[in-house]
Amino acid sequence: EHVRVTDRYGGESLVPFALQPGDIAVADNGYGYRMSVASATHQQADVVLRVTPATFPLETAAGEAFEVIPWLRTPGPAIREWHGWCAWEHQRYAVRLLAAQLPPAAAAIARRRVRHKAQTKGRMPSATALLLADWVLLVTTLAAPAWPLGDVLRLYRARWQVERVLKRMQQWLQLNQIRSKHPTSVEATVRALLIAWALQEEAMATIRAHLPTDTPMAPMPVSRWLLTGIGLDTLRQQVFGTWSQARVQTGLPRLRRFVVLSPRRREPQETTIRAWLTGRALVLPCIEQEAA
């Protein structure tokens, strides 16, 4: 439904997307603009956006500009929050600014990226750019009682799981190798590939359901990467007519040794995040009812 083909200059924006009331759009700083907040709010949805102060001006309740850089330079906790407003097309929107300081190792990597980017343009990085490299800045419209600061940060970090899905799609479906140059045929190709991916997800769910991977005493994680490949191969062979679903299920016990990973001390991130989001979905109505 939300497939749009643009040229390489097409900007990332939430405006073309039809959000539903209660949706939460989580996006990186490519979408971190006031128009994204306005678009989501008008559709009764919320946002969690990574932002850059220069492209996302904020203001106080009195309408005065809020200076983010001095706020970050002020000694204080490594995770902090400020409530204020942003304005877009003569309307104001209540937002929360969340700031989380990166660990020293991650901050050093971020500063190296800033320096490298500046050097490629033949200039020195500014002190402001180096300071901002130490922080993750988020703007959200989620209400504080239901979504405390720590939960919003965790929700944003969960976005990486979506990035991993996109990486799998790019590799397995070869999305970066579309031959056509005409927008209509490119869009048709992308839609066909997305349908193939949806069918693959269905095939993968069937395979996973029949894999003898878990026991009550020893849960065994499954390699989603390898399972995706098997799902696509299964779908491809079924289209060719050489495999049947029964044949796939018959061979699953032999596939187990290839797709089931060795036990880990820590639970896989995807499993942990899914469980947390499920718990949030169950708890949130109770929190909102108490707040009302």
Rank of each mutant, 00 (worst) to 15 (best):
P219A: 08
Y156F: 06
H210V: 00
R168M: 07
A275K: 14
R34D: 06
L232K: 02
V95H: 01
V15R: 14
L226R: 07
L284M: 11
A118I: 05
R159M: 04
Q91E: 15
P57I: 11
V139I: 04
W160D: 12
I230S: 00
T213I: 12
R157N: 10
A25T: 00
V3H: 07
T206D: 12
V3A: 05
K181R: 13
H182Q: 09
W88V: 02
T189H: 05
A209S: 14
V248T: 11
A198E: 15
M124R: 10
A292M: 12
V139E: 00
V248I: 13
V139P: 03
R191M: 07
R34C: 01
V283E: 05
C286A: 11
G30P: 02
T272G: 07
Q249M: 09
A54Y: 13
M220V: 14
S262H: 11
L153M: 09
R236Q: 10
A87F: 08
P125S: 09
V37M: 11
G11Y: 09
M204L: 08
L130H: 00
A205M: 10
G84K: 00
H116P: 06
G251N: 10
V248Y: 05
V136W: 04
L58N: 03
E67T: 12
A275W: 10
V114G: 07
G241S: 04
A275E: 15
H42N: 03
F56C: 09
R73S: 12
R254K: 14
Y156K: 02
F66W: 04
Q161E: 13
R4Y: 06
